[in-house]
Amino acid sequence: MITISAFRWVPPFAQGQVRDLRARWALEEAGVPYRTRLLEPGDQDKPEYRALQPFGQVPILEEDGQAIFESGAIVLHIGERSETLLPKDPAAKARAVQWLIAALNSVEPHVMNVAVLMFYEGQEWAKLRRQSATDFALHRLGSLAKALGDKPYLDGDRFTAGDLMMATVLRIEPELIVDERLKAYVERCTARPAFQRALAAQMGDFRDAA
């Protein structure tokens, strides 16, 4: 059975955001059972964990002696088992991969530039940085909204792994989602039963550790 690593506890503001949620969601969409390996504080820095995840992050997917890290790589790996996530048609599959990588490379860094400033509130440099970081993130999200247009999903009527990844990225900093098309898009993606099950599982682990 697949094992996904996750933190046993994180601060409340991070609950529902930790990136093992992406792996859980993909597994729920694919209908693949899994279990979690919950890390206690400090476990991510132990040599045996760093041998599998050099940066001490979550998630890791472990199965049959193989370990994969990075949420994007894990979602793509799971997607090979699920036509919901990665269509069999080569062109449609390429577009799904394209949007997944766009979420991680073209959107997430700019969203995170805004999100991380919360850790430095009160510092002058952070005050000076916030407006430019926000403006650039909004510009990038405006481009995304234009590409989405009136379609239900990024590739039209069909939800794919690209939507899964993009929706998780857009959830990071909700205040940036000012375009009504993007708001509706995130709501549409996260209303999926597979997302709701994945979120409930992650939050359940945090509640059990409280």
Rank of each mutant, 00 (worst) to 15 (best):
E29P: 05
G72T: 05
R8G: 09
G156C: 11
L61A: 13
A133M: 09
L76P: 00
E70F: 03
M118Y: 10
K93Q: 12
S143Y: 06
T3E: 10
Q15I: 13
T36N: 12
I74W: 09
A94E: 10
W125C: 00
L154P: 08
E70L: 02
L148K: 07
A67W: 02
W125D: 10
D157Q: 15
R50E: 13
A23F: 12
E40T: 06
A14V: 10
D64T: 01
G56F: 05
R207K: 13
R50W: 14
G142R: 05
I60G: 07
P47G: 11
Y185N: 07
H139K: 15
L144T: 04
R140L: 13
S82M: 03
I78K: 02
E175C: 05
Y34W: 12
R95I: 13
L27P: 01
A209L: 03
I101Q: 09
P33L: 00
E29M: 03
A115K: 08
P87V: 15
G65T: 03
R19G: 00
M1A: 07
I4T: 04
T134P: 01
V107L: 11
E180V: 14
R81K: 11
G16W: 13
R192Q: 08
V18K: 03
T190M: 07
E108Q: 14
D205P: 13
T36W: 04
P41W: 12
A145H: 08
W99K: 02
L164E: 02
I60P: 01
E63Q: 15
L85I: 06
L128W: 04
I74P: 06
E29A: 04
Q202C: 09
A102D: 12
V107G: 07
A30C: 00
Q196C: 03
A209Q: 14
D205E: 14
A133H: 06
V32W: 02
V114E: 07
E62P: 00
L38Q: 13
E175T: 14
A191W: 02
E29F: 11
V18H: 02
Q53P: 04
A115F: 11
S132E: 14
D150C: 04
L61R: 12
L100K: 02
S143R: 09
M1Y: 12
A210Y: 08
A14H: 11
R8C: 03
T134Q: 05
V116W: 11
K146S: 15
A96H: 08
L104K: 03
Q202G: 11
Q98E: 09
G65F: 02
A147T: 07
G162K: 01
I78D: 03
I4E: 01
H110F: 15
A209K: 10
A6F: 00
M112Q: 10
K127G: 08
L117I: 04
M118C: 07
D43M: 06
P41S: 10
L154V: 09
I177M: 10
R197S: 06
C189Q: 02
V178T: 14
V186F: 08
L85P: 09
